[in-house]
């Protein structure tokens, strides 16, 4: 991969961000760390969504479906069949990629608005099915709790979740800077023209989808072992989808960095609003913020910060 100067400069920023976040446990309490752990998982899901939907314009309303496959696979393997989590987690990731691809492959033939609806339908199917099919294994409506954890304590979990998120973020970010990233964006702008420049767009979309599924799989598998439980409600819910979507869009779709920002912003905002607004008012407020921001500034926080940075540079000159 050709790494130019600009990429190197950005990588410097990534490194600074990494170092800063690694020092954080020495400064803040475990309460804050636990909040940030959620932000890291949300960032995983939002980046996964962004790599598929932000790039190619194929809007997925079914990401909870992917996360759910991973979560249920590792939960069932480790909890019901005593498979060690060193095997169950990789198995879950593979299952997400394979299972997800098998289901979505036909859906990729469908254009635009319908794609979102089919993925939404997939999520609803899995929601219904986990409740009724083989409740002895899935735990039915109540799901499973008391899942094994990978590491214990807030600090360890913080480092684990940050590590996964950071590595995934850097890899995805490098990927979108290649010609692959450009080709995927071109699909969003005009798929027919991409085909007529000699590209097999199905292959490109399938690749984007598989990467997205892998990231969702990693995030989902680690997530259920962190929270220690899984249930259809909460997993296959529109509210969960909504949080992922809003994190990606609020931060700035198509940028990978944006969804990470969005995830931190959203999690921290929700947490600090908790004492003031204990109930659904929080969702009301942040949903309203997201809606206004989306209509007024669809490019999200990332573009606001990038613009500000540019202005500062001009001003210094």
């Amino acid at each position: 991969m050709a790494i130019d100067r600009e990429t190197l400069r950005y990588l410097g920023w990534w490194l600074a961000f990494g170092v800063l976040m690694c020092l954080l446990p020495f400064v803040v309490g475990t309460g804050t760390l636990r909040i940030l752990i959620f932000a890291h998982f949300l960032a995983m899901f939002a980046m996964s969504w962004d790599f598929l939907s932000g790039r190619t314009g194929y809007i997925s309303f079914g990401h909870p479906f992917l996360i759910g496959i991973a979560g249920y696979t590792t939960a069932i393997l480790s909890f019901r069949f005593d498979v060690p989590i060193y095997y169950s987690i990789p198995a879950a990731i593979v299952a997400t990629m394979v299972g997800g691809t098998l289901f979505f492959l036909p859906a990729l033939r469908i254009r635009g608005t319908y794609f979102a609806l089919v993925t939404l339908a997939f999520m609803e199917i899995l929601y219904q099915l986990t409740k009724v099919v083989a409740p002895k294994i899935t735990g039915g409506t109540r799901g499973m709790s008391g899942l094994e954890s990978i590491v214990t304590g807030a600090v360890n979990n913080y480092y684990l979740s940050f590590g996964i998120m950071f590595v995934t973020g850097v890899v995805l970010w490098l990927l979108i800077r290649t010609r692959l990233g450009i080709a995927l964006s071109a699909i969003r702008m005009n798929e027919e023209a991409v085909r007529s420049t000699g590209h097999n767009t199905t292959k490109l979309k399938l690749f984007a989808f598989t990467v997205s599924a892998a990231v969702s799989g990693i995030g989902g598998a680690f997530y259920v072992h962190y929270i220690g439980s899984i249930a259809p409600r909460g997993m296959f819910e529109i509210n969960f989808l909504f949080t992922i979507l809003v994190a990606a869009l609020l931060g700035g779709a198509e940028t990978i960095i944006g969804p990470i920002m969005g995830a931190y912003f959203l999690t921290v905002l929700l947490e600090y609003l908790r004492p003031v607004m204990p109930g659904m008012e929080r969702y009301l407020l942040y949903g309203a913020i997201a809606l206004v921001l989306y209509v007024v500034r669809p490019e999200g926080i990332y573009s606001i910060i990038a613009d500000a940075g540019r202005k500062v540079q001009e001003w210094r000159r």
Binding site: A183, A186, M189, T197, K203
Partner: peptide, 23 residues
Amino acid sequence: FGEMSVGANIRVGMAPDDIWKLV
């Protein structure tokens, strides 16, 4: 491709249909 420069438009045309090479 509306949101891409002329150069990037040409880049898509030049890009090989091979995911590994694209990366």
